[in-house]
């Protein structure tokens, strides 16, 4: 039996090596963010730098805050609106009787799979003609279109798990639709709503193509702003790493905390 235990610990060791190798780029980025610029890009790499916050200082001296706020308002705004639209729709598709459920579901998921290429040109020209370029509200509205299908799909699979007897009992009690939803169903699927919301938030926060194309100064969000830290004239790796660290921290921490819901939401949204 000792050989099998030995083999077990060997597999565990290999697992850890691989996992750490995969995590390394993130760890190295955060580490580099705390280095002074002159030690950030060296060969061989500096493993014992003079730790400093000057990278982060430089990031906020370059006024990163407005970009973060733009990202936050587009992500939070679009996520809330998506949920307001998606939860009733998913409810109609899973709990209340309706014809052509499959068609509607198929429609939603097909819009998610349609490349942005299919719609970006008219959208750009329309925004240009109404003066909607570089406007955070329009970006928020477009993010609704991107995230709505995922939210409907995920919410439907969460709602399908609500025991039907519960709802039927509420209906027999003469509970009206509003009560049915708010008192009986919502509390049960709250974790599902949180998961769907989190995934929409992550996608909106990380979105680059639309943000890069449709915003310039005023409504610029974080992802396209990050690219401005690449500086052809000199060393920039520490400040770039600091900016990237600030940019990914909200989503990574949220993802870690809500990991269970996130995993369940992704797997269920994908499979059921």
């Amino acid at each position: 039996m000792t050989t099998s235990r030995l083999r077990g610990s060997l597999v565990t060791a290999v697992t850890w090596v691989l996992v750490l190798a995969f995590f390394f780029p993130v760890a190295w980025m955060v580490f580099t963010a705390f280095k002074p610029e002159r030690q950030a890009a060296t060969m061989p790499p500096t493993f014992a730098p003079d730790l400093t916050l000057s990278g982060f200082q430089a990031v906020f001296d370059r006024d990163m805050l407005p970009y973060l706020i733009n990202s936050l308002s587009a992500s939070v705004g679009s996520t809330l609106l998506v949920l307001v639209l998606a939860v009733p729709a998913a409810y109609a598709l899973s709990i209340r009787p309706i014809v052509k459920v499959r068609d509607a579901l198929f429609f939603f998921i097909s819009t998610r799979f349609m490349p942005v290429a299919a719609s970006i040109i008219p959208v750009y020209l329309l925004l240009q003609s109404v003066g909607g370029l570089d406007n955070i509200t329009w970006l928020t509205i477009l993010y609704i279109g991107v995230n709505l299908p995922i939210a409907v799909w995920m919410m439907r699979s969460f709602l399908a798990e609500v025991p039907r007897e519960l709802i039927e009992a509420a209906q027999l009690d003469g509970a009206r639709l509003g009560t049915e939803i708010f008192r009986v169903v919502l509390p049960i699927v709250m974790p599902g709503i949180a998961a769907a919301g989190l995934i929409c938030f992550i996608f909106a926060w990380n979105e680059f193509f639309l943000a890069n194309l449709l915003t310039a100064q005023v409504a610029r969000t974080t992802p396209p702003f990050l690219t401005s830290f690449v500086d052809g004239r000199g060393q920039f790796l520490a400040v770039l790493s600091a900016a990237a660290t600030v940019a990914i921290v909200p989503v990574v921490i949220a993802g870690w905390i809500a990991q269970k819901q996130l995993v369940r939401g992704l797997a269920m949204g994908a499979i059921k």
Binding site: P25, M29, N206, P223, L240, S241, A244, I248, V251, V252
Partner: peptide, 19 residues
């Protein structure tokens, strides 16, 4: 292990390219 999926793609691209 799930972290790379959460990282902003723009940040990932920049860090991979330059670092």
């Amino acid at each position: 292990m799930i972290t790379p999926f959460l990282v902003m793609p723009a940040a990932a691209a920049l860090v991979w390219k330059w670092s």
